[in-house]
């Protein structure tokens, strides 16, 4: 049984005068438990739309998505979305409170503050430590850098204890060094926590570094190609094989672009 299944999925954006922009048509996907699947493609090819459909944030025009054989009709807690925009953190809460947000319901309002202070939450400490945020627990999001904000968003989604992480170009707005360290963090989390990760990116190197399988969306309404990542872990960007694969993927994307 696969963790997440898409069956005959179609989606189109409504345009003016009753016209529709087809993003894709009768499309199938099986996501295996514990894999990292990267959705790779140029900006505007619809890869974020695919992710939002799979996570339940958008409803398909036809077809359906199943999570462990349950139809997905709305966003679900077991599939945590991490957005591109660092403003996804709640500015009125500290880092610690932001991370605790997925379980806000379990804390009665009167006791919430007391709970935060007195009882050390082991899961919280562990997650803050893993994501390199333990010293920033009392900071407000406005006091953090872009990279730190995304670390915090990652920590928050982990606190919900999800099975799937949906990551929508989470590191695109970061500088190269923070981007590298966050990619390493994702790999570390994946190895320790064995989550299934769906990762949207337009960065070929990023996809090659992270993915078990690559889903390549080349053009609007174009063919979707799924392939195994031939590189073995641990991967290094400077490795000749890595560079060869990167060049190959680049030329594939470029050639498919010509059909537009």
């Amino acid at each position: 049984m696969s963790l997440l299944t898409a069956e005959n999925l179609s989606f189109s954006y409504p345009l003016d005068e009753g016209k529709k922009l087809d993003i894709f048509h009768n499309w199938n996907l099986k996501v295996q438990e514990g894999e990292i699947l990267c959705l790779l493609g140029p900006s505007g090819c619809g890869k974020s739309t695919v992710l939002k459909l799979l996570a339940g944030f958008l409803a398909p025009s036809s077809g359906s998505v199943f999570y462990r054989d349950n139809p997905v009709r709305a966003p679900f807690k077991m599939g945590q979305m991490i957005f591109q925009d660092p403003s996804q953190l709640l500015p009125w809460l500290t880092v610690r409170e932001n991370v605790l947000f997925p379980n806000i319901r379990r804390m009665p309002a009167r006791r919430r503050k007391a709970t935060l202070r007195k009882e050390p939450d082991e899961q919280l400490q562990q997650i803050l430590g893993l994501s390199g945020m333990e010293e920033y627990g009392d900071f407000y999001p406005s006091q953090l850098s872009g990279g730190m904000k995304q670390r915090c968003a990652l920590a928050r989604s982990l606190y919900a204890n999800p099975e799937i992480l949906f990551m929508d170009e989470p590191f695109v707005s970061l500088d190269a060094p923070s981007r590298n360290s966050l990619q390493k963090l994702v790999l570390k989390l994946w190895e320790e926590k064995k989550k299934t990760i769906l990762f949207v990116t337009h960065d070929i190197a990023e996809a090659l570094l992270l993915a078990d399988r690559l889903m390549i969306l080349s053009t609007l309404n174009g063919a979707v190609k799924i392939q195994e990542n031939p590189l073995s872990r641990p991967r290094r960007r400077q490795n000749p094989d890595f560079l060869k694969q990167e060049a190959r993927l680049y030329s594939y994307l470029e050639s498919s672009e010509m059909t537009l």
Binding site: F57, K77, D85, S87, L90
Partner: peptide, 14 residues
């Protein structure tokens, strides 16, 4: 109120 924050609420089934 940012739609991202509301999406966070949806995601955690509030």
């Amino acid at each position: 109120v940012s739609s991202l924050w509301l999406d966070l609420g949806r995601n955690n089934e509030l």
